[in-house]
Design a protein around this nucleic acid. Sequence first.
DNA 1: ACTCTCTATTTTGAATGCAAAAATGATCCA
DNA 2: TGGATCATTTTTGCATTCAAAATAGAGAGT
Lengths: 221, 221
Amino acid sequence: MLHEEVVGRIRDILLDGEIPPGARIPERELCERLEISRTPLREALKVLAAEGLVQLLPHRGSRAAKLTDKDMRDLFEVCQGLEALAGELACERITDHEIAEIAAAHAAMVQHYREGDLIQYYRGNRAIHEGIVNAAGNPVLTGLYASVTARIRRARYVTPMTPQRWALAVTEHEAILNALQRRDGVGLSHILRAHLRHKREEVLQAGFAETETSEPALKIA
Amino acid sequence: MLHEEVVGRIRDILLDGEIPPGARIPERELCERLEISRTPLREALKVLAAEGLVQLLPHRGSRAAKLTDKDMRDLFEVCQGLEALAGELACERITDHEIAEIAAAHAAMVQHYREGDLIQYYRGNRAIHEGIVNAAGNPVLTGLYASVTARIRRARYVTPMTPQRWALAVTEHEAILNALQRRDGVGLSHILRAHLRHKREEVLQAGFAETETSEPALKIA
DNA sequence: ACTCTCTATTTTGAATGCAAAAATGATCCA
DNA sequence: TGGATCATTTTTGCATTCAAAATAGAGAGT
C-alpha cells in the first residue's frame, strides 16, 4: 500500500470526525482496519502531526488534535489572508473559462440555497472558494489553503444558518463573482476579507461542536 | 533520540545546502551520521516531504526538493501575502515592548549595513520580519510562515546586493517600523507587499544559485 | 477504608529482518 | 565494437522484534 494513501485515509477518518478531537488514536485498531503494520501508520501520523491534524505526545501516543476557540480564530484569520491573496492573484491570471466555471458553481449554489439544501450549498460554496484559489495558479498557496481549510472543516462546527445569513452570504458571493469578472483584484480582496470575517463571526458566536473526547473526564481533586 | 530532533537536524542539513537541491539523499550515510536506524530517518523524510523540502520518488528514494523559478515565484507570493497579513494583525496587537525589540533589531541591522556585514545584515533583516510575524500572535500563521521562508532560504540564491538595493531596503524597513509604531495596519500591509515585491524582483532577476545535483547529467539519446 | 508502592501488562519508539523493486554490470550476440 | 539481455547487488518499503517507558493492578501498610 502506498504511503500517501495511508495518510489520505487517516486524514479522511479525522475529517469525518470518526475520531473526535482530543480522542486517542488507537494505533493497533487502525493497523488492523487498514491492514498495514505499525511502521507505515506511524509514518502517516507524523506527517499528519506536521499538518496540525494530529498531536503527538512523547511516549503517550497520538491524539486527534483538539482545536480551541483561539485555534479556530487563528485558522480563520490565516484562511482569510490566503483567500484575499488568492483573489488578488486570480484577478491577474484567471481565464474566462475558469470564471465561467466559478459562475456555474455559484449558480448551482444559489439553486441549492433556494431549495434549502444545506449540504449541497456548502459543497458549492467550497467549490467557489477553491476555484478562486486554484485560479491564482500558485500551487504553494493551494497547498497551504487546503491544509488550513482541512483543519477548519475538521472542527465540524454547526452554524445555525439563519435566512439572513444565507442571504448575506449569497449576496457576497455575487459580489465576489462580479469583482472576478471585472478583474478587480483589490476590490475582490476586500470583499473576501469581509466575507470571511462574517463567516468567522458566525462560527465563533455559535461555538463549534465540541465533540467530546471519548474518555472519562479528568478526576479533579 | 527524539523524532522532532531528527526532523530538525535533517532540515538544517538541507537548509545549509549540504545536500544540494535535486541531489539524492543518502539514507545509509545519514543513518550512520545521526546514529539512528532507518525507521526514524524515514519518518523524518516523510515529514519533510510534507513540508515541501524533500521529494519522495516511489521505490527510487528521496531527493532534496528542487526549486524551479516558478516555485520561487510562488513561494515569494505566498510569503508576501503572509507578511502582509501579519503586518495588519500585528498593528492591532503588538505591544510597545515588541515594537522596541523590532526597533532594536532594525538599529542593529542598519549598523551592520553601514559596516557592510552582509551576513549579520541578513540576520537582522530576518529578525525584523519574524518579529512582525510573531507580533501577530497567530501560531498558525507563524508556522506557515516558517515553512515558506525555510523553503525560500533553502534556495540559497545569491543576490548581488548593490548599494542602491541596500539603501532601498533600509528605507523600506524604516517605513515598516514607522507604520508599526503608528499601528497603521493597512499602510504596513502595503509597505510589506512593496518591500517583498522588490526583494522578489532581485531574486528572480539574479536567478538563484542553481546548485548542481551531485550526479552525472542525464545521458541524452 | 484509603493510599502508597511495587510488580505485571500494555503501549510506545526504534532496530532489525525480509521480500520486492530498481540499479549495476557482466555476458552474449550481431 | 555496440547493444541487448539476464544475473547480481543494492536499495527501498514494510513487517516483525525488542527494549524502554507508561499504565494498570494487586498487595501491604497506616
